[in-house]
Amino acid sequence: MSSTDIRKLVRLSKQGSTNAFGELYEIYSKDMYNFAYYYLGDTHRAQDAVGDAVCAAFSSIRTLKKDSAFRSWLFTILLRSCQKQLKYIIEQRSISDIEEHTEISSGDNDFRITVELKEALLQLSEEERQIVLLSVVCSYKSGEIGEMLSIPSGTVRSKLSRATDKLCRIMSEEGSKVK
């Protein structure tokens, strides 16, 4: 879909078309869900986060100043929505419960390696996870991530570098443990 088409859909959405917004949503839905899933490590929380974000985005679509910035705007809202869900998780359970919880929910999954990526991600700090997911799931450049998180792009690059390093180390340790 060309950027012109996206701008048109945004304009239509601003005029109240749910179908146009649905089309927009469809473009990003998979990325949004995966972002939330790996961020929160829980499919139910991820669905809540995406649902909240989509509704918040639609109801405030007219505050979006630059139509072409729709995607980063949407993901910024999703990011806030995920942060909120994570806060709920932390409020409701102790940290050890989270680990237990993620182990339980990972049982839904047949792919052991998925569990590894998800669990490895959960061992990162929240900010590191944000940066890695924005880079890996959304393919944002460091400058764009910096804008979304209000930090300089140089900082994003050094943090991304450290986080991916850590992630690879965690996953290789996990892998060797299994062997």
């Binding site: 499919t43 669905q47 649902g51 509704c55 792919f111 390696i113 990526l117 890695v132 991916t164 690879c168």
Partner: peptide, 29 residues
């Protein structure tokens, strides 16, 4: 590292749950 993580991610991308399908979302909107 980023490419490696990306490749793992690509192989393990989750499918969209039914509750988040376009149709369901439009209904909520």
């Amino acid at each position: 590292n980023t490419d490696f993580i990306k490749s793992i991610y690509e192989s393990q991308k989750q499918d969209l749950p039914e509750s988040l399908s376009k149709e369901n979302i439009i209904a909520q909107l």
